[in-house]
Nucleic acid binder design. Structure first.
Lengths: 137, 137
DNA sequence: ATGGATTGCTATGCGCAATAGCCAAGGTTA
DNA sequence: TAACCTTGGCTATTGCGCATAGCAATCCAT
């Protein structure tokens, strides 16, 4: 069957992202985490005390959608919210959060290696710069 | 703020795909179509008479999810379902469907050019092969 | 002819994102 | 200081894409 979609870079991007997200979600699920959780843990871990809105801006997640995300990882005992000035809250990982983050980092490293190694060597080093040009301003 | 995500090719892939899909959805929305609709129209247009399940396999969309998709473009008068053998249906574009597909193709061409040209020339030709390696078997 | 596979479908749920609106707290300007 | 606008966190709702489970009818292979 003819498939005109196979000529479209945009379609390749869509399918590749979908496949890789499914793979990563499967690898991170045993840790009890979702993809969005992992991204939040990484940023909080690298920036203890960030506020929820700062985190949302970094992840490009709306304020409204940060709420259930932070609730979930707080309920899991990975995160504490501390009132900062009566309006903002600062976010910090608990010890369990730090431990979970360490596990996640190992999973991420393995996954990223696996992903990059799927790309044939001649193209490998071009993938990330090309992708970054598509979304970073 | 430190952002460890920016070093991860997988994250770049996720963000790039999200950004490009949003852009394409915005460009195709004036035609009254969604991204999934366009992919279906393209494949049906190139393969008149395909069955719904063949189409679903090409697009990697579950049978169950094909139903509302095909209903929608049929209700829009773009598609006819013809009984093929009492079990399968063959799919054909109507004249309106062909016309809409022609419009969509123009939008797609413009979009794909725009997308590819966002990638700096040194990386440009590597993007699609790299992406294809991530999802095509 | 029987059993297994396929087709199209309903129903339902999940994950992620978007919008509109609310209230309290901060910042800015008159 | 008072009025104003903005920001932060939140609720509630919606949409989209995708997944699973199950069903009835049909086709196919042994």
């Amino acid at each position: 069957m003819k498939d005109p979609l196979l000529d479209l870079p945009g379609y390749s991007l869509r399918r590749a992202a979908s496949a890789m997200m499914a793979e990563f979600a499967a690898r991170i699920e045993p840790l009890g985490l979702r993809i969005a959780d992992v991204s939040a843990l990484l940023v909080i871990g690298a920036n203890p005390g960030v506020t929820a809105s700062q985190l949302g801006r970094a992840l490009d997640i709306q304020r409204a959608n940060m709420v259930p995300l932070l609730n979930r990882i707080e309920d899991a005992g990975l995160l504490t919210r501390r009132p900062l000035d009566g309006k903002s809250h600062s976010l910090h990982l608990t010890e369990a959060g730090e431990a979970k983050l360490a596990e996640a980092r190992a999973t991420i490293a393995t996954f990223e290696d696996w992903l990059v190694n799927r790309v044939p060597p001649p193209h490998r080093d071009h993938l990330k710069p090309a992708l970054d040009a598509l979304w970073r301003d």
